[in-house]
């Protein structure tokens, strides 16, 4: 997908009345080889089931502390404490680790730009053209 198209999409999204404040987008590195993720793929990656992206690159999911609660609510319908307890169990068994924690959307973007397999989420309004939107989550 080229940049123009992306922008177009973004513009469309911005312009659309549905794209109200708070909508989240799942973003990935432009070179990740992934254009679109289904919701299930997103869940599997973020909840640690899949270690790799559909393109075969090792997945590196990251959380953005500001949008974390909204994101998991939108993605799997769960509150943050549940998510934390889920990860606590996995950490205890030593089998998996939660996404890396980021403090801001900029940091998320930076991480994604710098890592091919990185995948994260930000407020749609803070979208940067340096990253690729692979899934949009309506609030």
């Amino acid at each position: 997908m080229n940049r123009a198209a992306s922008l177009l999409v973004a513009g469309l999204l911005l312009a659309s009345p549905a794209a109200t404040a708070g909508d989240l987008v799942v973003i990935a590195n432009a070179g990740s080889g992934v254009d679109k993720l289904t919701r299930e793929e997103a869940v599997n990656i973020f909840m640690g089931r899949y270690k790799k992206l559909p393109s075969g690159i090792a997945a590196l999911p990251v959380d953005e502390s500001g949008e974390k609660a909204a994101f998991y609510k939108a993605l799997v319908g769960k509150e943050l404490p549940e998510i934390h307890s889920y990860w606590a169990r996995l950490v205890f068994s030593g089998q998996g680790s939660p996404p890396r924690q980021m403090e801001s959307a900029a940091e998320v973007i930076e991480t994604i730009v710098n890592n091919k397999g990185a995948i994260g989420y930000i407020d749609k309004k803070k979208l940067s053209s340096r990253v690729k939107v692979v899934l949009e989550l309506a609030q």
Binding site: M47, G48, R49, Y86, R89, L90, S93, G94, Q95
Partner: peptide, 17 residues
């Protein structure tokens, strides 16, 4: 819940737990 997670992740360790 734990079984669900274990199966979800095919986590042998957790499943064994």
């Amino acid at each position: 819940r734990t079984a669900s997670i274990a199966c979800f992740l095919s986590d042998r360790q957790l499943a064994d737990e």
